[in-house]
Lab assay of single mutants.
Amino acid sequence: GSVVKEKKEKALIEVRPYVEYYNELKALVSKISSSVNDLEEAIVVLREEEKKASEPFKTDIRILLDFLES
């Protein structure tokens, strides 16, 4: 629970300088966080969101995924 939350919060802070739609990304992460149990599940849902998103938000999600998977 809290470790996953920390990882996601740290990821958002780390990617902030590189993303165009930070507030939207943060809102998406919050929405996903409330419906998943762990980081792996969150990553799966983020990948689905990435497929549906259009640029440049798609790239923002990709940047976040790269950080979460590192």
Rank of each mutant, 00 (worst) to 15 (best):
G1R: 03
G1L: 01
G1T: 12
S2E: 11
S2C: 14
S2T: 09
S2N: 13
S2Q: 12
S2F: 00
V3Q: 10
V3M: 07
V3L: 10
V3I: 12
V4H: 09
V4A: 12
V4F: 05
V4K: 05
V4G: 10
K5R: 11
K5N: 14
K5P: 06
K5G: 11
K5T: 12
E6D: 14
E6I: 09
E6S: 11
E6T: 08
E6C: 14
E6N: 07
K7Q: 11
K7H: 13
K7G: 07
K7I: 15
K7L: 15
K7E: 11
K7D: 09
K7A: 15
K8G: 15
K8Y: 15
K8Q: 15
K8V: 15
E9T: 06
E9P: 03
E9R: 05
E9A: 05
K10Q: 13
K10D: 07
A11W: 12
A11H: 03
L12I: 03
L12M: 05
L12W: 03
I13D: 14
I13Q: 14
I13R: 13
E14G: 06
E14M: 04
E14H: 11
E14D: 08
E14I: 05
E14K: 07
E14W: 01
E14A: 14
V15H: 01
V15M: 02
V15F: 02
R16S: 08
R16M: 15
R16I: 15
P17M: 06
P17H: 13
P17D: 15
P17R: 10
P17F: 07
P17E: 14
Y18C: 15
Y18L: 15
Y18H: 15
V19L: 05
V19E: 10
V19S: 02
E20I: 13
E20N: 06
E20Y: 07
E20C: 15
E20H: 10
E20G: 03
E20K: 14
E20R: 06
Y21S: 06
Y21C: 15
Y21P: 01
Y21H: 10
Y22P: 02
Y22V: 02
N23Y: 13
N23H: 10
N23L: 14
E24K: 07
E24Q: 06
E24W: 04
E24R: 04
E24N: 03
L25G: 00
L25T: 00
K26I: 15
K26M: 14
A27W: 05
A27I: 09
A27K: 06
A27V: 06
L28D: 00
L28W: 02
V29C: 10
V29F: 14
V29T: 03
V29R: 00
S30T: 14
S30K: 06
S30M: 10
K31S: 13
K31M: 09
K31E: 13
K31I: 11
I32H: 04
I32G: 03
I32P: 02
I32R: 02
S33W: 15
S33G: 07
S33F: 15
S33C: 14
S33L: 13
S33A: 13
S34V: 09
S34W: 06
S34M: 11
S35R: 11
S35C: 06
V36S: 08
V36Q: 04
V36N: 06
V36F: 05
V36E: 06
V36W: 06
N37R: 08
N37W: 06
N37S: 12
N37E: 08
D38W: 15
D38C: 07
D38P: 04
D38F: 07
D38Q: 06
D38V: 07
D38R: 07
L39P: 08
L39S: 05
L39G: 05
L39Q: 05
E40A: 10
E41S: 09
E41W: 04
E41R: 05
E41H: 09
A42T: 13
A42S: 07
A42P: 01
A42K: 03
I43H: 02
I43A: 04
I43P: 00
I43T: 05
I43Q: 04
V44W: 09
V44Q: 12
V44S: 12
V44R: 09
V45H: 11
V45I: 11
L46D: 00
L46G: 01
L46F: 04
L46Q: 00
L46M: 07
R47F: 05
E48H: 07
E48P: 00
E48R: 08
E49W: 04
E49V: 05
E50C: 13
E50K: 07
E50R: 08
E50Y: 10
E50H: 12
K51N: 12
K51A: 13
K51H: 12
K51I: 11
A53Q: 08
A53S: 08
A53F: 07
A53E: 07
S54C: 12
S54T: 11
E55C: 07
E55W: 06
E55S: 03
E55N: 06
E55V: 07
E55L: 07
P56E: 06
P56Y: 04
P56W: 06
P56T: 04
P56S: 05
F57W: 07
F57G: 01
F57I: 03
F57S: 02
F57Y: 05
K58A: 13
K58R: 10
K58C: 04
T59A: 11
T59I: 04
T59M: 04
T59C: 08
D60K: 01
D60Q: 02
I61E: 00
I61C: 01
I61K: 00
I61D: 00
R62G: 11
R62I: 04
R62L: 06
I63Q: 03
L64C: 02
L64A: 02
L64E: 00
L65S: 04
L65W: 01
L65A: 11
D66F: 12
D66A: 11
D66R: 08
D66M: 10
D66N: 09
D66L: 11
D66H: 15
F67L: 06
F67V: 13
F67P: 00
L68F: 08
L68I: 08
L68R: 00
E69I: 10
E69L: 08
E69P: 03
E69C: 09
E69F: 07
S70C: 10
S70A: 11
S70N: 13
